[in-house]
Design a protein around this nucleic acid. Sequence first.
DNA 1: CTGTTAGCGCATTCAA
DNA 2: TTGAATGCGCTAACAG
Lengths: 343, 343
Amino acid sequence: VPSPRRRPTIQDLARAAGTSSSTASRALSGRGYVAAEVRARVLAAAERIGYVPDGNARSLRSRTSRAVGVLVSDLRDPFYADLAAGIEGQLRSAGYHVILVSSDGEERAEAEGARTFLAVRVSAAIITPVSDHAVRLLIDGRVPLVQAARTADAPACDRVLVDDAQGALEVTSHLTGLGHTVIALLAGDTARASDLSAGYRAALGAVGVRADPELVVSIRPQAGAAREATDALLDRRPDVTALFAAGAALAEGAFQALSHRGLRVPDDISLVAFGDVPWMSLVTPGITTVDQHAVALGRMCARLVIERVTGPPAGDPTVRYIEPTLVVRGSAAEPARRSVTPS
Amino acid sequence: VPSPRRRPTIQDLARAAGTSSSTASRALSGRGYVAAEVRARVLAAAERIGYVPDGNARSLRSRTSRAVGVLVSDLRDPFYADLAAGIEGQLRSAGYHVILVSSDGEERAEAEGARTFLAVRVSAAIITPVSDHAVRLLIDGRVPLVQAARTADAPACDRVLVDDAQGALEVTSHLTGLGHTVIALLAGDTARASDLSAGYRAALGAVGVRADPELVVSIRPQAGAAREATDALLDRRPDVTALFAAGAALAEGAFQALSHRGLRVPDDISLVAFGDVPWMSLVTPGITTVDQHAVALGRMCARLVIERVTGPPAGDPTVRYIEPTLVVRGSAAEPARRSVTPS
DNA sequence: CTGTTAGCGCATTCAA
DNA sequence: TTGAATGCGCTAACAG
């Protein structure tokens, strides 16, 4: 049957089922009393005439929506893709749908995305903000908010964080356990850098070595920058025996720089990373790193946001942590005696 | 100022600007006559009181929406992530927002997603369907549709496709050009497989060799399956000198199987792929492959869908092609004389 | 248990 | 050029 020009409304449905529209509405939503027999009749009619409730009208009237805004920095980055996938799956199975914005790290796009969320009356939002402008906008608009994996310094709201300090501690300890003491840290200039470097310093401290500021370099979190930085670092400090690249893209750059220099991993130098992406298990040797469980992180964000939407009013902001896991592969080994240093 | 409990409506805005709500509406939308001075006053007031138009009310009344449904098979797959990123960016800059569903390849989720799109009255949809159920649903609902990178055999609609046959032809020709004739094809059991294998066969035909059916294996498009299949294939046919893994995940599995067997690439065997993902440029040697330009593909889908929404009524279904590009790295070389075959 | 009534916030007639 | 009136499709009160 060629469907009618106009989409069937609840009135059409009511007519087809021989009831009033409010009864039809109750039958569909399950709220309020409806005779079982009538209910069945309505459902059957809906199926028959191909009735699909209009979400806009529904939201308008009921002042709620099944939409959740999701704002990530860059969908092409596997971390955010996994995060988004986790969020989407969990929300979908709870009956919500996702409005997705990938800001490409641009403040402009972020703010625009936040405004979109306000406009469509999302019932909540999950974001990984680079600036706090978007956060402000959303909070001012009274949108329940959870921040994922970042701690934009500004206003307080629910967060789900990766325990960056713990992860960095573990992977750095792995290095010190192997005997390394001259360990360089390549960190991205993001909100997460301070926790990461705290973990790094803690691990060094635990074996009685003071972090050397010259070995800590902060750069844009991109492979190209990491390549250059690694090169420069190694020129300056040929005594480093291990490199901690605190991010998947950084590890990529570092890895390239190392190969390019003809340095063998881990024989000549050890390399560890933060964040697990496919290539790390494909190269030889595999990269020892820490898995941040991005999908699980996404799921937890979704769960938290649903609690906030369906649960009791406010309460204090919640912070939950995802415990990352050390993944030992082959890229870290005991330091070699490379140079002719007397000692 | 702590914003009021209730979000400002256009009535509040009208009051604040000293006009009627209809004038305010015209001032905001830019449709119809409004004195320049009044218009400025309204815009200023909107800014001041933090007015954000209610998208639901707007859609309900105007029977249009700025939402586009995007349904991909698996966000965690870099191809779909890139595709989604391309779509989202292009749509956003055209003033649309994205409702994203990642179906994880499940028909169930796909259909559910399609129903969501209908419910929220998206003005169009872009999908990579595994079954045609979702396609049907959307077409029956008169939703302008473009299919991305897949040709679900069922109903005709706009499509943007990767020229799979051409890409496969190029990469296989690269192999034959090097002197290979015993080339195995590892293909996923997807809608794209037939074009891919057509290109493969064409390349072989061009140098006068008939494709050996025993060398063509069709499997689930996953690394694990590819690992096993590669192993089995090499046991059966130790004479193959090159492997074409027609998909990034397949290439991953094949690569692992090869390393595991202690086969050196490309000295002992050549490997080429279809689809470019980060690890392919990080391993040594880099994997020779074909770049399908997923982001550009996404952008083109978005452009096409916008044309359909804003342009003249219908017209015949359009098909556009993305031309993939051969990326030569080091994983293919002249075939070695490995076995003691008497020539 | 069911039907009637009344808007949700907005864009669009139509008169003025 | 502006304002008053109307209803998009639905659900929440209320009365039966």
